[in-house]
Design a binder for these strands. Structure first.
Length: 857
RNA sequence: GCGAAAGUGGCGGAAUUGGCAGACGCGCCGGAUUUAGGAUCCGGUGGCCGAAAGGCCGUGGGGGUUCGAGUCCCCCCUUUCGCACCA
């Protein structure tokens, strides 16, 4: 039986924190700041214990930092725009806003019952005009700078979601959200010029020391920088038989990372979508036949083409172009594996030194000219294009390469790119895999793009003073048609801000990743209605010191935010280079080996857990069960174990408390204590040392908790031996009112440290216990416990003694024992003598304070 | 296919610098208390041999460096993640 009643305690303290505005903060130049952030939530309806884990990690860090004297900003908000709200509205014949606000209200209640120390007064939701107007404002600044632009392009269209997706949102050829196969479509789209910052984003990765290496690698791959050269091949005129004659003015520009192999470029390959292809078709002897074959390439499944699932095939255009280095004509083919969207959509093919080109050449009987020979290839015969069975892509020496023959593959590229530039047909160039970010969405529930289309003046920005362009209230969602806003005349019809004539509003809305790319700045100054945020506020709070969220955002949100950070910096609104100093990607919570989801029916509802075991037990369990980065498998028995531990803590503190009052500290500070008392003090101080380091900087929440459990175990043993009865329900007036002063003082020190250090994990319980220990003002007034290294250090240690690396004895010796004494004591051990009998002692390794190893032969 | 990370009891995990492997928790076993159950407290719990003392083995597998390896090096296996025709 225990009288630990989490429901009552949690209610009491949650109310008190709210009444006292305990976690609200303002800028205070006199104190060091700490910005602790968890990724804001999509209001899907219900938080599950996976969300809870994310928020717990943040809360433990925030509460600990607060106790250590930091001015901690720990805000929360809602990523409230997006498709599910719209789909739900269509289904329920209601409005997305209704669904969204209801969900927010419910989830907020769930989070509040967990006692997370958020500065709720800074809460924001991206669907509020007060927020998204600054999306629009920023878009206009980017528009002015050419960073936001409109162009027709082939885009990723998800037929299921009926909208366009960014490249980052296409996973294995499918929609990142619904998995439906994505189709290409040609549409006029708005783009943000993230490629302008490609180099900066790449360079910045090198300075993100406190990010997981895995995320950095993913970002590096995504940006995909390739250094190489662009070279133009002049197209020969079509033959006299061709109807249109053709002209010699056309060039094919290729991008290559191996310009050093260009003397071996024996043909050129075009993507089926390359602009010259249609011209070659027109000028062909059999235009209809060629067209048909090209169409077959274009119709290939896009995913298969991108992932290499289709067999490499080509079409000979019958045309030729001049390799500018050799001066010789080479045939032009169209190949199904050449990508239109990368580089120039055309490549020079060097079959001797590129495996794909090699296979292609063998298949179609095209020449293979070796221009690189491996260096110092010992006994191996030189490569021969006629007989080789695979391309050689390694380093070596150039052969058959005119004036560059004899150069190494290390030196040649720079020289040859320079030569191309000098002769006017090429230049060194860098190519990125990263593409501009397409943000147009043909959906309703998002930020309207603040642009007006005028027949006379073209694209006109909405004047700043007319912001926000508010979403019109739509009565009913039918789900018909492409773009809901386009169907609302009151929204679409407007006048041109420049000439005043009738004009149309842009009806696309912004990708919701725009919303999430800067919300962490808005938290710094959430109520500002004159600007996105006051730069002074961000100068104080920014950058985010600790950011916690799922690894699934490694290349979406986390690259976009780094991009926006740079834009804001160029606008003079922030002065740091990177928005998130430290990143922790927390592991998912699984159940039955699978991610929790409504459709699988394996969701664990935090409210249910709270009502049985209390929020504190849930909080403790989720932080204790594994390191934060690892995924965990939910177990009910683990949660019960955490509850059991809290019950033990409750009993320990409430039953010991009456006996602890007024114990003078000096009894233990200078006084001579017997070994059990010294032992408990040592454990107390050592636990403070361990927990402090585990939490900050290591963020090893699980080992911090186990250290506290050890301390509790030790306290139970100590109480057992010193007349404090914890095991049994107290008889009337039981407890330990007559403890010796030293015992009371040592116990008090231990119990108080325990309550303080446990409080970031289980704040309600610890506030209550702290109060019952006679402290007013709450935990916030208390501060983080300090430890004395001299006390934390044992005065006696156990030193293992090995013989030939095997443990044979243990020595209990004073901690500061000398090397010579250790050696002598070890050799005197009977177990050591037994295992060295009849052998010569070759060496005795003594590591002071660690171990002795006797080497006997 | 390429790259990265990981592999430790029945389970989750610990071991901060190359120095007692298995902290802490779950589960299980035993004892106390109890009419009983539950709860609680105390103790035990890697495997094998042994009555015990003790011994041998043991961190995916194999080799190596070292007085000493979960930790460092090489090869292999498995799992997870990322990339996957990017010219």
């Amino acid at each position: 039986m225990s009288d630990y009643d989490p429901q009552a305690i949690e209610k009491k303290w949650q109310r008190r924190w709210a009444d006292e505005r305990a976690f609200e903060v303002t800028e205070d130049p006199g104190r060091p700041k700490y910005y602790c952030l968890v990724m804001f939530a999509y209001p899907s309806g219900h938080a599950h214990v996976g969300h809870v884990r994310n928020y717990m990690i943040g809360d433990v860090i925030a509460r600990m930092k607060r106790m250590r004297g930091f001015n901690v900003l720990h805000p929360f908000g809602w990523d409230a725009f997006g498709l599910p709200a719209e789909n739900a509205a269509i289904k329920n014949r209601s409005h997305p806003e209704t669904w969204t606000l209801d969900n927010i209200a419910h989830m907020k209640g769930q989070l509040q019952r967990l006692g997370i120390s958020y500065a709720w007064e800074r809460e924001l939701a991206t669907c509020e005009a007060a927020y998204y107007r600054w999306n629009q404002w920023l878009f206009l600044r980017m528009f002015e700078r050419g960073l936001a632009y409109r162009r027709r392009s082939t885009v990723n269209w998800c037929p299921d979601c009926a909208t366009v997706l960014a490249n980052e949102q296409v996973v294995d050829g499918g929609c990142w959200r619904c998995g439906y196969a994505v189709e290409p479509r040609d549409l006029d789209q708005w783009f943000l010029r993230i490629t302008e910052y490609a180099d900066g984003l790449l360079d910045g990765i090198g300075r993100l020391d406190d990010w997981p290496a895995k995320v950095l690698t993913m970002q590096r791959n995504w940006i995909g920088r390739s250094a190489g050269a662009r070279v133009r091949f002049a197209v020969e005129p079509a033959g006299p038989a061709a109807p249109a004659g053709g002209d010699a003015g056309a060039d094919i520009e290729v991008f290559t990372t191996r310009i050093d192999t260009i003397f071996g470029a024996t043909f050129v390959l075009l993507a089926p979508e390359h602009p010259l292809v249609s011209r070659f078709v027109d000028e062909a002897r059999d235009p209809a036949g060629l067209q048909k074959r090209v169409q077959a390439f274009r119709a290939l499944d896009r995913t298969d083409r991108l992932t290499g699932a289709v067999e490499k095939e080509g079409i000979d255009t019958g045309r030729r172009c001049i390799n500018p280095f050799t001066g010789r004509p080479v045939p032009i083919w169209i190949a199904n594996f050449v990508l239109a969207e990368y580089g120039t959509g055309a490549v020079m093919a060097v079959p001797a030194h590129d495996q794909r080109d090699f296979e292609f050449a063998r298949k179609y009987g095209l020449p293979v000219d070796v221009v690189i020979q491996p260096e110092g290839a010992g006994g191996g015969a030189p490569l021969d294009g006629a007989t080789m069975d695979a391309a050689y892509a390694g380093p070596g020496v150039l052969v058959g390469s005119g004036e560059f023959t004899g150069r190494s593959t290390a030196d040649a590229p720079a020289e040859m790119a320079q030569a191309a530039e000098d002769r006017g047909f090429g230049r060194a160039a860098v190519q990125f895999r990263l593409k501009d970010w397409g943000i147009s969405r043909q959906r309703y529930w998002g930020t309207p793009i603040p642009i007006i289309h005028c027949g006379a003046c073209g694209l006109q920005p909405v004047p700043d003073e007319d912001l926000p362009v508010e979403l019109p209230r739509v009565a009913e969602f039918s789900g018909r048609g492409d773009s809901p806003l386009a169907q609302i005349p009151e929204f679409v019809d407007t006048t041109c801000p420049s000439c005043g004539r009738p004009a149309r509003r842009e009806t696309d809305t912004m990708d919701t990743f725009v919303d999430s790319s800067w919300y962490f700045y808005r938290y710094c100054d959430p109520a500002n209605d004159e600007r996105a945020f006051d730069p002074a506020a961000v100068r104080y709070w920014g950058p985010v010191d600790f950011y916690i969220g799922g690894v699934e955002h490694a290349i979406l949100h986390l690259i976009y935010s780094r991009f926006f950070c740079r834009v804001f910096k160029d606008l003079g609104m922030v002065d740091h280079d990177e928005p998130f100093t430290r990143l922790l990607t927390q592991g998912m919570v699984l159940r039955d080996g699978a991610v929790m989801s409504k459709s699988k029916g394996n969701v664990v509802d935090p409210d249910e857990m709270i009502s049985t075991f209390g929020a504190d037990a849930l909080r403790l369990y989720e932080t204790f069960v594994a390191p934060p980065e690892k995924e965990i498998e939910w177990t009910d028995s683990g949660l019960e174990g955490s509850f059991r531990f809290l019950t033990r803590v409750w009993r320990l503190v409430t039953r010991a408390a009456p006996a602890l009052g007024g114990a003078p500290r000096d009894v233990i500070e200078g006084g001579a204590l017997d070994p059990p008392h010294r032992g408990l003090r040592r454990k107390t101080h050592d636990t403070v040392r361990r927990v402090s380091g585990d939490l900050d900087p290591r963020a090893h929440l699980n080992t911090a908790v186990s250290a506290l459990m050890e301390l509790v175990n030790e306290l139970y043993a100590f109480c057992d031996g010193h007349g404090v009865k914890l095991g049994q329900p107290p008889a009337a007036g039981a407890g330990a009112e007559a403890l010796p002063p030293a015992t009371a003082a040592v116990l008090r020190e231990a119990v108080e440290a325990l309550v303080l250090m446990l409080s970031p994990f289980t704040p309600h319980l610890c506030e209550e216990l702290w109060e019952r220990l006679g402290h007013a003002g709450g935990l916030r007034a208390a501060g983080w416990p300090e430890f004395d290294p001299a006390v934390a250090k044992a005065d006696e240690i156990v030193v293992p003694v090995q013989v030939n690396g095997k443990l044979r004895a243990r020595l209990t010796v004073p901690a500061d024992v000398g090397e010579e004494e250790l050696r002598t004591a070890a050799l005197a051990e009977s177990a050591v003598q037994a295992h060295t009998a009849g052998r010569r002692i070759a060496r005795v390794v003594v590591v002071r304070g660690k171990l002795v190893n006797v080497v006997a032969r």
